[in-house]
């Protein structure tokens, strides 16, 4: 038995039993060996409902070690219900340290965002995925989509983007924007905004994707080529804002629109709370330094 301060002894380390972890670990290795290919795994019933990150939690539980520092974000925020409860779940079942700071984390579980702070080699990003199959909305049959992946029959994906262009004049897909991995598999990057797609490409961090309801996982090893699908005359573009973050003034981060009253007033704030707070701290520091200099002169 392992005694760890803070770990609830009623559970095995990180909740899952060892045989389940072995099964998921074998699937993770297959996912890494075939980047972008969906690997089925025997998903377990978790103590929270599907849609709350059961896939991500099972992947995290299978890789997490006692010395790891864990960060959990939900739409970029560390302080939402989903992020807080998953962080507390692992603090309780694994006795691990957790952090809100991207650079400090060894494992980051995320729902629908990639942190703004660039990831480093050695870090692992675990995505929560609702529908792992990028072709599912076009082709409901699993047998058919499996054959399409086998034959690299991805024309329909381009057709879907083309229909966007024909109808709206631009590609209207704004999140879960399909990508081509290692020039072989079309992959759903999970519902991250397409703003984050370029961060998938040649990332120094290992990226793992877990879908609990669909019982699939897939992976991107570090330094893997990930290209967003596009056309020569309609190249891939990310969202841009005319506004800046109302709290930290950032112009380079993904902004959430916040409605502030019934009159239609609104402001934009960074979706990545850690990034925003670090910038706010730096702003107050630099302004206090300016004040000191003014006093000194």
């Amino acid at each position: 038995m392992t005694d760890r301060p803070g770990q609830d002894e009623a559970y095995n380390f990180a909740y899952l039993d060892e045989q389940t972890k072995r099964m998921i670990r074998r699937a993770i290795l297959k996912g890494i060996a075939i980047p972008g290919c969906q690997i089925p795994f025997g998903g377990r019933e978790m103590p929270l409902p599907y849609g709350w990150g059961t896939g991500g939690i099972q992947v995290t539980a299978s890789i997490l070690g006692p010395d790891d520092c864990l960060k959990v974000i939900d739409q970029g925020a560390d302080d939402t219900t989903n992020a807080v409860s998953i962080r507390r779940f692992f603090e309780r079942t694994a006795g691990i340290r957790s952090t809100l700071i991207t650079e400090e984390a060894d494992v980051i579980q995320t729902r629908h965002r990639i942190p703004e702070t660039p990831l480093k080699a050695g870090q692992t990003l675990v995505y929560q995925v609702p529908i792992p199959e990028p072709l599912r909305f076009i082709e409901p049959s699993e047998t058919a989509t499996r054959r399409m992946h086998a034959l690299e029959d991805y024309g329909v994906m381009h057709l879907k983007l083309y229909e966007d262009i024909a109808r709206y004049g631009h590609v209207s897909t704004a999140y879960a924007y399909p990508v081509m991995v290692n020039q072989r598999y079309v992959m759903d990057p999970s519902p991250i905004p397409k703003f984050d797609n370029p961060k998938l490409h040649m990332s120094p961090a290992l990226q793992l994707f877990g879908a609990g309801r669909e019982k699939r996982l897939y992976a991107l090893p570090p330094y893997t080529r990930v290209e967003s699908l596009d056309f020569e005359d309609f190249p891939f573009e990310v969202q841009k804002w005319d506004e800046q973050c109302a709290l930290c003034g950032a112009t380079d981060s993904f902004l959430d629109e916040v409605i502030t009253d019934d009159e239609g007033s609104r402001l934009f704030v960074c979706s990545d709370t850690d990034y925003c707070q670090k910038r706010q701290k730096r702003l107050t520091q630099s302004s206090s330094e300016v004040r000191k200099e003014e006093l000194a002169s």
Partner: peptide, 12 residues
């Protein structure tokens, strides 16, 4: 438990 985890991380 913990040795298998540490070993898996190195294999991964």
């Amino acid at each position: 438990v913990l040795d298998a985890q540490a070993a898996f991380r190195q294999i991964m």
